[in-house]
Simulated scan of single mutants.
Amino acid sequence: MNDEADRRPAHDPQDLARLLVSRQQAGDAEAMAALYEPGAILDIGGGQLARGREAIHDFYAKLAATRQKFELGDQRPAIVKGELALTSTRLHDGTVTVEIARRQGDGTWLWAIDQPSILP
């Protein structure tokens, strides 16, 4: 995917997971963090939370260094109520992700809360 297409904003909450996987596979931690609100929270495991876009960027930059690649799983339909959306995906190993996205003033969507693993 070219840089322009990879960095386009999410105009639907369903776009967020696909964009995250694409950007992670490209090793672009900056573009991954851009899918989150400035004050977003990401559960990074072990009872730790990355708070804010900078901390989320730092986490994804370290993850990119491991060369681990995300795969797009079975994305469930987003549940949308007004400016909020609940997104989730069942990954191939049975893990389930759950996220809360918020519609921004320009109509695009960003994640506000992300818990990438709720079931082993």
Rank of each mutant, 00 (worst) to 15 (best):
D3Q: 08
A5D: 03
A5F: 09
A5P: 06
A5T: 13
D6L: 15
R8C: 00
R8H: 05
P9Q: 04
A10Q: 01
A10V: 11
D12C: 04
P13Q: 07
P13I: 08
A17Y: 01
R18L: 12
R18T: 13
R18C: 04
L20G: 08
V21A: 06
V21E: 04
R23I: 03
R23S: 03
Q25S: 04
A26S: 11
D28I: 09
E30C: 00
E30P: 05
A31Y: 00
M32E: 09
A34Y: 07
A34P: 00
A34H: 01
L35I: 08
L35T: 09
E37M: 11
P38D: 15
P38T: 07
G39T: 14
G39H: 14
I44E: 01
G46V: 07
G46Y: 07
G47A: 02
L49W: 01
A50E: 00
R53I: 11
E54F: 02
E54K: 11
A55P: 05
A55R: 05
I56R: 05
I56Y: 05
D58R: 15
A61V: 04
K62S: 14
K62Q: 14
L63S: 02
F70L: 15
L72I: 12
L72Q: 11
D74I: 09
Q75V: 14
Q75Y: 06
Q75F: 01
R76D: 15
R76S: 13
A78T: 02
V80Y: 03
G82E: 03
E83Y: 01
E83L: 06
L86D: 00
T89G: 00
L91M: 13
H92S: 15
D93S: 11
D93Q: 09
G94C: 11
T97H: 03
T97P: 07
V98G: 01
V98P: 02
E99A: 13
E99M: 12
E99Y: 11
I100L: 12
I100T: 12
A101Y: 10
A101R: 00
R102M: 10
R103V: 08
Q104N: 10
G105A: 15
W109H: 06
A112Y: 03
D114I: 07
D114A: 09
D114G: 04
D114Q: 04
Q115A: 15
I118E: 08
L119Y: 13
P120G: 14
